[in-house]
Amino acid sequence: MIIAERKPIDEILGFLSQHQKVLVLGCGGCVTVCLAGGEKETGILSSELAMARSKEGRPLEVAQKTIERQCDFEYLEGIRHMVKDVDAILSLACGIGIQTCAEAFPDKFVWPGVNTKFLGVNLNVGEWAERCQACGQCVLDKTGGICPVARCSKSIFNGPCGGSQNGKCEVDPDTDCAWALIHDRLARLGQVESLREILPVKDWSYSRDGGPRKLVREDLELESGK
């Protein structure tokens, strides 16, 4: 799941300073699950913005709406009539949703309301941790289901490094050493010998180093296009 966190209010107020009427747009996908931009957060932020602007003596009219997902054009289509009436949209979706929204409404200002942080797991109510970097070529088969790319601070492929201390990482003592976890899990599965295999240098061209990525599956595509 994509994990996001609401942006500092000053930043948001800065974006909206020129507007009189905005639509705070929540998303019912990942940002609802990670408690950053669902209907509840949309309501709270709307109220906060109205109060902040009231205090400045420049009232802001705030409309609010939360749609199923902002990363699908069809869902955005459904709010076209609402968008017409506002000066700008403050999107609480992840970076993907914000961009889709901007693409769907080319004549409107679309401002980001959250910082998209990482792809991660929900450990507890209010606690999230990174698990994947979408590097494009999964190695979890070789590393006991623990990702060295996302969970090792150095993303090294034949760890641990010298900074691994009592199962913790030298970069941050609260972070588990991914390679210690990999070793322990493989040992538990009786596969620790497999660590003798030296993993080759990773081909980062599948990741961001190859430029923006795109996935096309001709076997699934509709003839008419989007």
Binding site: K40, G43, I44, S47, E48, A50, M51
Partner: peptide, 11 residues
């Protein structure tokens, strides 16, 4: 109690 209730009250 909901943060939203507090916010709406403070409006």
């Amino acid at each position: 109690i909901d943060v939203l209730f507090f916010m709406k009250a403070l409006e």
